[in-house]
Design a binder for these strands. Structure first.
Lengths: 244, 244
DNA sequence: TCTACATACCGACCATCGGTCTGTAGGGTT
DNA sequence: AACCCTACAGACCGATGGTCGGTATGTAGA
């Protein structure tokens, strides 16, 4: 083959053709990384293009708009969150309270894992401008987990263990609390960055204890029924984050 | 002044010069109207310009960016919310629960008034894309009202009336609930638009009753202590909205 | 009242960004 | 080999937020 100029010297073939799903995945990977690092509005299509090594035409062959990219990223998270929630539900048995506690534990474990995997995730979601991104992800993830949660609460009501004024409000309250953790996370993160891991851990832990006490009330349970705190888990997460 | 050509024929003086505050106010008026009607991202600077009857250069003399406009609008609301909250606090006396109820009543009255004044307000804030605007306003308004709320709750704790796990969480929970009303508002609004005012009212009322029951729990109060429902108020608001 | 200075204001211009369109490469099928 | 389908390239476009040099409208001091 007298084509050394073809087989070897061509370091960059003009076109790399991929299966749609694969290409889509690559683009989403690049976009996700950028979005988490700097927020959705700040990142331009051009940047995603060069990060994903594809042309504009190629991109718009797979995505209809920039908004579509956001949807794609959010969708990934939703799917992950959903399967995680279902796994947690299916893996546990016993009465509603036991299942509920197991579910909360798994849920916070999953969140901590996300925080560990993506260095910027927590740091970034605390910055204004990323509200949209963060809000959409948490909303979608919560929405995915909500049916599972409500099912368990329903079971608790049927069993006569829980006593609640309105089932929708319970779900909402829990979602609201989880959203409000943003502030505490920021505080803990700042402390961790200054090397004060103890204070950071204690900060998160106190919050979780308080949340648990509040959920006790909301579900009409005696104090100490709901378990939400897991200091070692926080420690791991914070350590992973701080170590770049 | 023999200058008929000056005093009368000049229909449009080339420049209208105003005091900075006045001009700023005019621009904000125009911007607010447009934002509420169609959302922040949809409205272009050019539209604000023509609505406020000012040139681009003039505009950028008073505002540094489009974002600045949002800040201005939000700031107005914050101030209004703050004074409303303070008024409500100062106007009431009695024990913490009485003051708390009075405060809630005033607060919801104020919100209803806003909904009445601005036709599009509710309709618009339910549309995606206006999340940012709505979120920023509610967040700012809530943040303004929060100290007042916490002060009252603190009083209740001191008086031994309230029994709470963590004061910050209480504020957060209440704020979260108020944010979650969006969904219910949408439902009620849709019902009202179809002429079913009864269903709309009932929808809001049920929500408020449930919320009150939940807050009872959170504050460690016997059921029925917190009063949040005011059907006639909703009726007025919904009627005003539906009648264009 | 003339001059000098400050500032509110104008509008043409610019850079950038999301999105479109025409054309092309490359793998599979016949 | 001829063909087609489609993943892909990149020039191009319209809109939009923002800038800049210049102009009108005051006001303070001589």
């Amino acid at each position: 083959m007298g084509a050394s100029s073809k087989t070897e010297n061509d370091k960059t073939p003009k076109r790399v053709r991929m299966a749609p799903d694969e290409r889509r995945g690559h683009i989403l990977d690049a976009a996700q990384k950028l979005f988490f690092a700097r927020g959705w509005d700040d990142v331009t299509i051009a940047e995603v293009l060069s990060a994903a090594k594809i042309s504009k035409g190629g991109f718009y062959h797979h995505f209809s708009a920039k908004e579509d990219l956001l949807d794609g990223v959010v969708e990934r998270f939703t799917i992950q969150a959903l399967t995680a929630a279902q796994t947690a539900r299916d893996a546990t048995s016993g009465n509603a309270l036991q299942r509920f506690n197991a579910f909360l534990a798994e849920s916070s474990r999953w969140k901590a894992e996300q925080g560990r995997k993506m260095k910027f995730f927590i740091e970034v979601m605390l910055r204004p401008g990323n509200d949209i991104l963060f809000d959409r992800i948490t909303t979608a993830a919560n929405a995915a987990a909500m049916p599972v949660l409500l099912e368990m609460i329903g079971q608790g009501v049927d069993e006569g263990i829980f006593d609640i004024p309105d089932i929708d409000l319970v779900g909402e309250t829990i979602m609201g609390l989880s959203r409000g953790r943003r502030t505490v996370l920021k505080e803990a993160f700042d402390a961790a960055e200054q090397g004060d891991l103890d204070r950071a851990t204690e900060c998160l832990d106190r919050r979780m204890v308080a949340e648990a006490a509040l959920i006790d009330r909301v579900l009409g349970l005696p104090r100490g029924s709901v378990l939400l705190s897991n200091p070692t888990e926080y420690r791991l997460m914070l350590r992973a984050i701080v170590n770049d």
